[in-house]
Amino acid sequence: MIGATLVGIATSAIRLATPYLYAAIGEALGQLSGVLNLGVDGIMLMGAFSGFYVTLLTGHPTLGLLAAVGTGGLMGLLMAFVSVTLQAEQGISGIGLYLFGLGLSTLLFGMTVGTVKAVAGFPPTPIPGLSQIPILGEILFSHNPLVYGAFALVPLAWFVLNKTPFGLKLRAAGQNPLAADSLGVNVIRVRYVAVIIGGILSGIAGASLSIALLNVFQQNMTNGMGFIAVALVYFGGWRPLGVLAGAMLFSTVNAIQVWLQVQGVDIPSDFALMMPYVITILVLASMARRRIHVPAALNKPFERGGE
């Protein structure tokens, strides 16, 4: 009984963490290159809608995913253009992007689909062999392909950031763009690439909801997840593993509070719902002495030969 409960909570947490992982790792890449993008939630919504709509039209979730990748990339490009080329204040342009995505996804949904519909998204795909392992098999290897993708992204992002020339350039662009520039790094291009990849990942984050985990679309269905994803980047100290830890902490507590309510434990639902937010803050506060490396040029536009 206790075993089954723990398995249930762990499986639930992994599912819940999926959109946060995509979005937060994408956001971390952008921030490491020096661009704060508060528009993640808007990109997620556009990704969720385009993925959903294309899947509905074609019946192929893979095409839906590609649509979400394309839409996310375009939204990322828009953000990059405004914040890198036009050197706009990043916090505010992100809020603009959020509103744009929120409004446009609702509008397009209303014009094209107009009512609640379900699509046949990616089905759960247990991994042969591995899913047979007792306990772990169910927790880790009996999920949706997009869930595996989210977790595979963590080591991949770590590798790219720490072991490839691109990762080095990306971090240099966010740490000391002037020095990076003098060493021949094209800071502008690096930031563009980072923000566009971030957009693509946010688009996939949205699609993971609409064509994998929930298979429906509703206006504002992300319900502010994009903002939580931004918060998780700070929790993780811009490291993929840290982001993973944050996303899992937040999602596990959320899974526990859902479980407590489902079991009929007598606490006011509002307090149960508060738990993930409170505990995330408390855990981070309790690690006050941890070392963090803030990207020094975060939120600062770059201009060759500028101030």
Binding site: G8, R15, L16, N220, M225, V262, G264
Partner: peptide, 20 residues
């Protein structure tokens, strides 16, 4: 048992409550 998810729009949490 009846659970309240604190929102009229959080499809994901409603879905997770159902799975639980």
């Amino acid at each position: 048992n009846y659970t309240f998810i604190g929102s009229y729009s959080d499809v994901a949490l409603a879905s997770e409550a159902a799975r639980t």
